[in-house]
Design a protein around this nucleic acid. Structure first.
Length: 836
RNA sequence: GGACCCGUGGUGGAAUGGUUAACACGUCUGCCUUACACGCAGAAGACUGAGCGUUCGAUUCGCUCCGGGUCCACCA
C-alpha cells in the first residue's frame, strides 16, 4: 500500500502530467488498425497568449470525451492546433514594433505568435488536457498555408471561388480598406431631408404638366406622381439606382409604375421590398451605391447596377463633368450642376441649395443616427467597391443544411443557428482580406489579357508578391494578388488538416470525417458553417459525425467577462488556488450545454471538498483492504447490505453510461458524487467498520470481513474509474492503491459498464430500511444533543409489519452503526425510534 | 427589429404529466464519533417569473405577456 497524502495536494498534478507525457499515455496509435478510431476536430484557439475560462470549459468538455473514449477501447485521435493569423495579432505587433515592411512584419507576427502558443500550451498541459502534441498544427505554418492554398486552388478549379467587385468598408481619410472590427459606432446629429421624386405611371391614363396633379389630359406624356424620398445623404443622388417601398404599403402597392424619376432626372426601377419600413418618411426609399450596408443588400437582391459615387479619397466621381456628359439614364441633368471632385460635404450643400431653388427640397429635420467611424481616426467610413475573392455559399445553402442535418447536434436546437444563417445569408462569402499576417491567396493577374493565373500546386506554399511571373499567353509581367485569406478560410479546413487530406490517403480514410466537432455555439454561423461547406466541396463528404456545443462562461455576477468591468477570472489564478481537477469538475458541473453560465466559486470549492473526501475515504478503504485480494468466492458471503451497495453502484454505473452518450457531464459527476459521498461514505463506511475492525479469527467473522473488503474494493475502485476522465489526476493518484506500478495508468483500464451480477434487486428494501433506521437514530441523538457515538442501552423500534420482515438481515448494522445494545421491535403505523 | 436559449428556496443549479420539488454553497443548532472539522448529524428556507389554455391533475405541454442572455441586423 502506497501511503496517501494526509491532505489533498494538487501539486501532485504536475507529477502525473509529466508521467503521462513520458509514457505517451495518450498517444494515438497509428499502427493499431484493429481498434476503432475516434477522432476529435478540436477548435484551434486564437493565439492570444492566454486561455480564458471559455476555453477552459470547452476544452475540458472534449478532454472528458477523449479520456472516456480511450477507456472504452477507442483509438483516440486528438490533435490540437492554433489559429494564428488575424487582425488582433497585427494590432499588437504593430503597437509593439511600429509599422514595418510586410516581410519583416510577418516575421515579427510569427515570433510573437510562437511565444503566445508556448504560454497557452503550458496552460493546457497544467489543466491535464490530453491531446497528442505530435500532431500539433499552426495555421501560420508553411505546411498549413500549402494546404489552404491547395484547397483554394481546387475550389477555384471547380468554380466555387471567384473574383468580383464588392463593397468593403473604406476609410477615405486613411485611404484603406477596413474590417468590421476596425470600425466603431458613433451617434451623431444629422439632417434628414425629404426630396421630391416622381413616379412615372403606366395606368393608361395620361398625365398633364408632370407636376403630379391627376386627371389632366394634355398631350401624350405619361402621368407623373410626386413622392417624397427621405435621405440623409443627398450627395449620393447621382448613384441612385432604384426606389423601393414596402410590398404592403397601400400608397404604392396598387400603382402601376413604369419607373421612378430621381431629383436629378434619372429613371430608375420602383420595386417592392419587405425590408423597407413603411412608417419611415414617405415609405419610399432611394437605393444608392452605397449609402450604407442596407444598400448593398438591396443591390444584390434586386440585381441593381453599380455606380461608384465616391473615389478613394471620398470625392464625388461619376457625376457628369460637363452638361453633355449627363448619365444616359438621366433624361435631364440639371444644367450647370457640376459635382465631380467635390467633397461629400460640399456636394451635399451644393445639391441641397439646388433642390431648394427648384422646389424639390420639401423639408429638412434633425435626426440622431448611428454612423460607423474608423476606430483610429474617428472619421466616418464609406462603403467602397473593390475587387475581392468570394466563395459561393449562397447557391450551396441547401446542400450545407442537408449535410448539417446528417450530423448529430448536441444539443439539438443548436442546428437552428446554422439553418437560420443559411436562410438569411444575402451574399457570397468574401474570403479575401487586405491584411499582412494571413495566408496569401495564390493568384496573379494579367492586366493585358485580363486573366487570372492561379499558382501551380508544385509551387505551394506561395506568396505571390514574392514570386515574379509572366503571363502564359502574352509574356507580360503578372500582377500578384496581395490580399490574404479571411481567417475562417484557414480554420474551415481543420478536419482536412488533421486527417492529412491529400497527403496520406490511408490516414485520411481512418480519421475523416472527424467523429466529434466540439465548438462554441456563437461560431456555428462561421466555423461550423464554413467548415461544412468547404469540406463538402473538397471531399464530397460531410466533415464530422457529431457536434458538441458549449456556451459561454459569464463572470460570477452573471455578466460577460470583460476588462472594462474588471470581472475576469484568470485560469492561472484558479489553477494555483484549486488545481486542475477542481476546475475540471467545475467544468463538468457547468455542463448545461450550449448555455451560458456564470462562473461559480461554490462549484470549485465543492469540487475541492469532494476530492478531499475521496482522498480520506481512500485512506480508510486502503487501510481496510490492505493485503486483500479480490476473490469471487467472497460473493457467497455478502451480507444483504453489501449487496444493496453493489446494486446501487451498478445503478450509478448504468446512469453514467447513459449520460456519457449524451455528453451530460454534470449528470455523471453528480451521480458519482452523491452516491459516493452521501451513500457510500455517510452510511456504508459506518456500517462496515465493526466488520473491518473485528479481531475474531473464527471463520464467520473472517468471511464477513472479506465480504466487506470485497464490497469496499469494488465500490472504491469503480468510483475512481468512473471519475477518471473528469478528475484524472486525483483518480490516478488514488489508483496507486490498486495498481501494479507507476506505468499502470488508470486510463489504461476499461471504463466500468453495468454488470448483471451486481443487480441485487431484492436487497433494496433492507438497504433502504437500514438507512431510515440509522437516520432516525441520528435524528433522535441530535435532538437530545447527544454525540453520535453515545451508546443506547435499549432501542425501541416501532415500524410497520412489512418492514419488520427485513429487520433481521440488518440488525447487526443497526447495533454497530447506532451503538445500540438491544433492540425491541414494536408494530406501528410508521417508523419511529425511542431510546429506552 | 429577427432567430434562438433561459427565468425553480438568499445564491448556483437538478428533476418529473400525479403523494411532503434533488444537490451544493450560505444560514441556524448540536457533535473534535480511532478516514476526513475542506468533516459528521440535524434544522429552517420555494405558492417552480405573470396570466390564460389543454388535462381528472402541470413546475413539467401550448399560447400571450414580463424579465434576462446570446447571435445576427440596424435603418434610409
Amino acid at each position: 500500500m502506497i501511503p496517501l497524502a494526509d491532505r489533498l495536494d494538487f501539486t501532485n498534478e504536475q507529477k502525473w502530467q509529466a508521467r503521462w507525457e513520458a509514457a505517451h499515455a495518450h498517444d494515438f496509435d497509428e499502427a493499431d488498425t484493429a481498434k476503432p478510431v475516434y477522432s476529435i476536430d478540436t477548435p484551434p484557439p486564437f493565439t492570444s497568449g492566454d486561455l480564458h475560462m471559455g476555453h477552459v470549459l470547452s476544452y475540458s468538455y472534449f478532454d472528458f470525451v477523449a479520456r472516456y473514449k480511450r477507456m472504452r477501447g477507442f483509438n483516440v485521435y486528438y490533435p490540437q492546433g492554433w489559429d494564428c493569423q488575424g487582425f488582433p495579432t497585427e494590432t499588437k505587433v504593430e503597437a509593439k514594433y511600429g509599422r514595418k515592411p510586410p516581410e519583416e512584419f510577418r516575421k515579427l507576427c510569427i515570433e510573437w505568435t510562437h511565444a503566445c502558443i508556448g504560454r497557452m500550451r503550458a496552460q493546457m498541459n497544467s489543466l491535464g488536457f490530453s491531446p497528442d502534441w505530435r500532431y500539433e498544427y499552426r495555421t501560420m505554418d508553411p505546411s498549413y498555408h500549402k494546404l489552404v492554398q491547395k484547397s483554394i486552388l481546387q475550389m477555384y478549379e471547380s468554380r466555387q471561388i471567384y473574383r468580383g467587385e464588392h463593397p468593403v468598408f473604406w476609410c477615405p481619410s486613411c485611404q484603406s480598406a477596413l474590417a468590421k472590427t476596425d470600425t466603431e459606432d458613433v451617434e451623431r446629429q444629422t439632417q434628414l431631408h425629404d426630396i421630391k421624386f416622381q413616379l412615372e405611371l403606366d395606368d393608361g391614363k395620361e398625365g398633364g404638366n408632370g407636376k403630379g396633379n391627376e386627371g389632366g389630359a394634355e398631350g401624350g406624356k405619361p402621368r407623373l406622381l410626386d413622392i417624397a424620398i427621405a435621405t440623409t445623404r443627398p450627395e449620393l443622388m447621382h448613384a441612385c439606382v432604384a426606389v423601393l417601398f414596402h410590398p404592403e404599403d397601400a400608397r404604392y402597392k396598387d400603382l402601376k409604375v413604369k419607373s421612378a424619376i430621381s431629383a436629378l432626372g434619372a429613371k430608375v426601377p420602383f420595386k417592392p421590398d419587405a425590408d423597407v419600413d413603411p412608417l419611415f418618411g414617405s415609405g419610399a426609399v432611394m437605393v444608392c451605391t452605397f449609402g450604407d450596408k442596407q444598400d448593398v443588400v438591396w443591390m444584390y437582391r434586386h440585381k441593381l447596377p453599380i455606380i461608384r459615387a465616391l473615389d478613394e479619397r471620398g470625392k464625388i466621381i461619376n457625376a457628369p463633368a460637363k452638361e453633355s456628359e449627363a448619365s444616359p439614364s438621366a433624361s435631364s441633368w440639371p444644367p450647370g450642376l457640376l459635382l465631380n471632385g467635390l467633397s461629400i460635404f460640399d456636394a451635399r450643400s451644393k445639391l441641397l441649395e439646388r433642390f431648394k431653388s427648384e422646389g424639390k427640397l420639401l423639408s429638412s429635420k434633425p435626426l440622431t443616427q448611428v454612423v460607423k467611424v474608423h476606430d483610429r481616426c474617428k472619421k466616418p467610413i464609406e462603403l467602397s467597391l473593390s475587387w475581392q475573392w468570394f466563395a459561393k455559399i449562397t447557391e450551396n445553402r441547401e446542400k450545407i443544411v442537408a449535410a448539417a442535418r446528417q450530423m448529430r447536434w448536441a444539443p439539438e436546437f443548436a442546428i437552428s443557428y446554422l439553418e437560420d444563417w443559411a436562410n438569411f445569408v444575402e451574399w457570397d462569402w468574401v474570403i479575401s482580406r487586405q491584411r499582412i499576417f494571413g495566408t496569401p491567396l495564390p493568384f496573379w493577374y494579367c492586366v493585358k489579357c485580363d486573366q487570372t493565373v492561379p499558382a501551380q500546386e508544385s509551387e505551394l506554399p506561395v506568396n505571390p508578391p514574392a514570386l515574379e511571373k509572366k503571363c502564359p499567353a502574352c509574356q507580360s509581367s503578372l500582377v500578384p494578388e496581395s490580399s490574404t485569406c479571411d481567417c475562417w478560410v484557414d480554420s474551415s479546413i481543420t478536419p482536412l488538416a488533421i486527417s492529412k487530406w491529400g497527403e496520406d490517403s490511408k490516414f485520411f480514410k481512418r480519421t475523416y470525417p472527424a467523429s466529434l466537432r466540439p465548438q462554441g455555439v456563437e461560431i456555428v454561423r462561421t466555423w461550423a458553417f464554413y467548415t461544412i461547406y468547404r469540406c463538402l466541396e473538397l471531399t464530397g463528404k460531410p466533415p464530422f459525425g457529431e457536434l458538441l456545443l458549449n456556451g459561454n462562461v459569464l463572470a460570477p455576477d452573471g455578466k460577460k467577462m470583460s476588462k472594462s468591468l474588471g470581472n475576469i477570472i484568470a485560469p492561472d489564478k484558479l489553477l494555483a488556488d484549486y488545481g486542475a481537477d477542481c476546475i475540471r469538475i467545475w467544468a463538468a458541473l457547468s455542463g448545461a450545454m450550449a448555455r451560458d453560465r456564470p462562473f461559480s466559486y461554490q462549484d470549485v470549492q465543492y469540487a475541492k471538498s469532494f476530492l478531499n473526501k475521496l482522498l480520506n475515504a481512500g485512506k480508510l478503504v486502503g487501510k481496510s483492504i490492505e493485503g486483500y485480494k479480490p476473490d469471487d468466492a467472497d460473493e457467497k458471503h455478502l451480507r444483504p447490505i453489501d449487496k444493496y451497495f453493489l446494486h446501487r453502484l451498478n445503478e450509478v454505473v448504468h446512469e453514467c453510461a447513459v449520460a456519457w452518450g449524451d455528453f451530460e457531464f454534470h449528470r455523471i459527476t453528480k451521480a458519482v458524487q452523491e452516491f459516493f459521498w452521501h451513500e457510500f461514505c455517510d452510511y456504508y463506511l459506518e456500517y462496515v467498520k465493526y466488520r473491518i475492525y473485528a479481531e475474531g479469527t473464527d471463520k464467520e467473522t473472517q468471511q464477513s470481513k472479506r465480504a466487506a473488503q470485497y464490497t469496499l474494493h469494488a465500490v472504491y475502485k469503480t468510483t475512481l474509474l468512473l471519475l477518471a476522465p473528469i478528475a484524472p489526476h486525483s483518480s490516478e493518484e488514488l489508483w496507486q492503491m490498486f495498481s501494479a506500478g507507476e506505468s499502470d495508468f488508470i486510463s489504461k483500464h476499461a471504463y466500468p459498464t453495468p454488470d448483471q451480477k451486481f443487480a441485487h434487486e431484492k436487497s433494496v428494501p433492507a438497504g433502504q430500511l437500514l438507512a431510515q433506521v440509522i437516520s432516525a437514530i441520528r435524528q433522535e441523538k441530535a435532538s437530545r444533543k447527544l454525540s453520535l457515538n453515545s451508546p443506547i442501552a435499549k432501542l425501541e423500534l416501532v415500524l410497520p409489519e412489512e418492514q419488520a420482515a427485513h429487520l433481521k438481515s440488518i440488525e447487526d448494522e443497526i447495533k454497530a452503526a447506532g451503538r445500540v445494545e438491544k433492540i425491541e421491535v414494536k408494530e406501528g403505523e410508521e417508523l419511529k425510534v425511542v431510546f429506552a
